[in-house]
């Protein structure tokens, strides 16, 4: 299939640009870049790298918070315990399920909303944008409670409003069964974070050069062809960023599960498992090991995305 994109390097390069080597200007820009990013980099090291290293260190110990005297080095035992436990693999599957379902639905919905925001009449555009963004402004715990109350068998309205749907009855207990619980959890997540994805896609949409659209239109391309051959290929980087951020976010899902089911009926996510070992059981070693494994999975996902999309983010700068 042929797509119409401008090669990113060609977008800004002046014809007379000198080839090869770093110019003085580039060097001073790089220096300025480090000076601007430096403080943030130091803060990141302090608040991110340090805890990660500490978690890796703690994960090698058998250490209970209330019993510090019996702290003992156990090497990789904690990892062996986790990886040989069915609960870990079940949590991985549940987390993957939530991630894939919510991100896929959000991408489609978010793209639609981004189009609406981009094309809306300029007079109502601010209103549309605000309305679409409201769910994202709601705190996750609050949204989880709202969805729980809505589906609750005693206080909820869903059962009586939607009883005409097949499979829904006035006495359907949404949180009493694994797949129904996961359905509500996914719905809550989708409602809450679709605005985020649509916002990122809107930024990508704005980057698609209008000239390409016009050229395609002159050539007689239909709306659908322009979408698939012009718009989407030109916003590949934005789509990747949106998907990557959301997938990493979705993989760490915790709040909705904690509020709605408390992990009952096999709805525990990996983050929930880490919470239970570290905070409830106070087994700092075992919990740290779960967190480290979660971190590794997240890194793998990020690497897979960047490889799979073959997008170099620095290209966006036109270097």
């Amino acid at each position: 299939m042929s797509t119409t994109t401008l090669p990113p390097t060609k977008k800004t390069e002046p014809v007379s640009a000198p080839k090869g080597g770093i110019s003085d200007r580039a060097r001073s820009e790089r220096k300025l870049g480090w000076m601007l990013a430096g403080p943030a980099f130091v803060v990141m090291l302090a608040v991110t790298a340090y805890p990660i290293l500490q978690a890796i260190y703690e994960s090698l110990f058998s250490y209970r918070l209330t019993d510090p005297d019996n702290r003992a080095f156990t090497g990789l035992t904690n990892y062996a315990v986790i990886l040989s436990d069915g609960l870990w693999w079940q949590s991985i599957l549940v987390t993957l399920f939530i991630t894939v379902v919510t991100v896929a639905v959000e991408l489609v919905l978010g793209f639609g909303l981004a189009m609406v925001m981009a094309k809306a009449l300029s007079s109502i555009r601010p209103v549309v944008r605000a309305a679409i963004l409201i769910p994202y402004a709601v705190i996750t715990v609050v949204s989880a409670f709202a969805w729980q109350f809505a589906f609750d068998i005693n206080t909820g309205f869903v059962n009586s409003w939607f009883a005409w749907l097949p499979g829904v009855a006035t006495d359907t207990d949404w949180f009493g069964e694994k797949w129904l619980s996961l359905l509500v959890i996914c719905l809550a997540e989708i409602w809450k974070t679709t605005p985020f994805i649509s916002l990122l896609l809107l930024a990508g949409l704005a980057q698609v050069p209008e000239v390409l659209q016009e050229a395609a239109q002159v050539d007689g391309a239909t709306w659908w062809q322009r979408l698939w051959k012009v718009t989407i290929p030109n916003m590949k980087a934005a789509i990747m960023v949106a998907l990557l951020f959301r997938s990493l976010d979705a993989f760490r899902v915790f709040d909705s599960i904690f509020i709605m089911t408390g992990g009952a009926n096999g709805t525990e996510s990996v983050s929930f498992l880490a919470y239970r070992q570290t905070i409830a059981r106070l087994e700092i070693g075992l919990g740290s090991a779960v967190s480290v494994l979660l971190f590794i999975v997240v890194v793998l996902i990020a690497a897979a995305f960047i490889k799979g999309f073959k997008v170099d983010l620095s290209q966006a700068r036109g270097e």
């Binding site: 068998i153 006495d171 359907t172 207990d173 949180f175 009493g176 009952a264």
Partner: peptide, 9 residues
């Protein structure tokens, strides 16, 4: 068995 439809929650 006689706990009602939402017994487990």
């Amino acid at each position: 068995a006689v706990g009602g439809p939402a017994f487990t929650t």
